[in-house]
Write a protein that binds this DNA or RNA. Sequence first.
DNA 1: ACTTTATTCCTACAATGTAAAAATAAAAGC
DNA 2: GCTTTTATTTTTACATTGTAGGAATAAAGT
Lengths: 103, 103
Amino acid sequence: MKSKYLGEFEMVVLGAVLKLGDGAYGAAIRQEIELGSERSVSIGALYTTLTRLEAKGYVGSRLGESTPQRGGRAKRYFRVTDAGEAQLRRSFAALNRMLEGVL
Amino acid sequence: MKSKYLGEFEMVVLGAVLKLGDGAYGAAIRQEIELGSERSVSIGALYTTLTRLEAKGYVGSRLGESTPQRGGRAKRYFRVTDAGEAQLRRSFAALNRMLEGVL
DNA sequence: ACTTTATTCCTACAATGTAAAAATAAAAGC
DNA sequence: GCTTTTATTTTTACATTGTAGGAATAAAGT
């Protein structure tokens, strides 16, 4: 078993997906991150991380029903798995312990 | 100027060095991290990160006066620079914003 | 001198971060 | 129905950060 800590961007992405609940697909997640953390993120960078998180079992995804308004490919919606949420908690808690008192 | 966000381990290391104040040298920093975040860290991994943080100007270092008790090489003491502390604050704050409410 | 001890430094590779451009797929217009 | 536009995902490639093992230093004791 590996069970390392999550990277910084992985935590950010998981947080955004959690916050969005339903409606967490590429562009929405990206916007959530850019607003919340004042950083610009390319869509490719985001998908790469999402794919890796899925491979680890920290997020799952489903393709949206194809009822778009104007054209465009079907959205892929992401959700954080229980394992993902647990891992996020663990990682963030460890970081907090290291920084509390000095931050 | 780059000014990206710090990685997860970089934040942990900076936190440990801050917490230790004077007396922040290799072995002590390592122990601080292992206690605080319940992870095991090799000393090599730690020095690599410390060296990189120094290259970015986030920590500084000085060699300790050679007055060891029993033998062994002189310690190198690290301190977090103002830029390092500011960057740590920035990075951690962004992460907090992304996770508050959902964590 | 040589052995022991404490510590830093080097080297190498794995994992994560990041972006640019290509590929898909659906709807609209002609 | 075929082409164009639009929204979105996928692929590919490389940079940065994470991580460990072992070599190199240097001081003290014998």
